[in-house]
Each structure stands twice: as structure tokens, then as C-alpha cells.
């Protein structure tokens, strides 16, 4: 009933949308774990590729989704 009206969820002290959060988890986690698992088995390559996956995921998510929080700006009185 209130599902339509309440489009935002408060997670870890900020507003997110459930759909975008799910999608970003589905983008970041496979990139990170995939980087680790598919890297040549020669340390520290798997870890480095895994970390690169995490950073890549961050940028993809940052570009793909818009922040939900609302900002009001103005001059100081």
C-alpha cells in the first residue's frame, strides 16, 4: 500500500532506493570477486584485480545512479 509513496529507504544514515541498491550490489560484487577469481593465480595479482574490480564498480555505480538525498543551497545571510 505505502510501497508507492515511500520510494526511499534509509540505510546507513542516508536515502537510497531499493532497486538501485540491489543493482549496485549486483554490479560491484561480481566485478570484485570475478576479478579475484579470474586473475592468474600468482599473488598478489588476484587481490589487485579484485580491488580494481571494487574501484571500477564504484565508478560505474556513481555514474549509473543518482544520489537520492536532496540538496538546498543558498548564500549566507
Amino acid at each position: 500500500m505505502s510501497e508507492k509513496k515511500n520510494r526511499f529507504l534509509n540505510v546507513w544514515d542516508d536515502s537510497v532506493s531499493g532497486r538501485d541498491l540491489l543493482l549496485s550490489l549486483c554490479i560491484s560484487t561480481p566485478l570484485t570477486l570475478g576479478g579475484y577469481l579470474l586473475a592468474p593465480a600468482q599473488p598478489p595479482l588476484p587481490l589487485i584485480l579484485g580491488l580494481s574490480g571494487a574501484i571500477l564498480g564504484f565508478f560505474i555505480n556513481a555514474l549509473l545512479f543518482r544520489p537520492k538525498r536532496q540538496l538546498q543551497t543558498g548564500e549566507e545571510k
Binding site: S15, S24, S28, T32, Y36, L51, P67
Partner: peptide, 27 residues
């Protein structure tokens, strides 16, 4: 402040830390 609040979605932070922890736990 304006840049981070306007351009970086909270979802991106959450997903990054979640996947980092998954990676280290798997290792």
C-alpha cells in the same frame, strides 16, 4: 560538499564496502 552530495550516490559506497568485505572473506 555540494559535489559529493550531488554526484556520489550512497548506493555506490554501500556496494563498494560490501564487495570489499566479500572479497577479503573469500580470500
Amino acid at each position: 560538499c555540494i559535489f559529493v552530495f550531488k554526484h556520489i550516490p550512497h548506493e555506490a559506497f554501500l556496494a563498494m564496502f560490501f564487495s570489499l568485505v566479500m572479497l577479503l572473506a573469500y580470500m
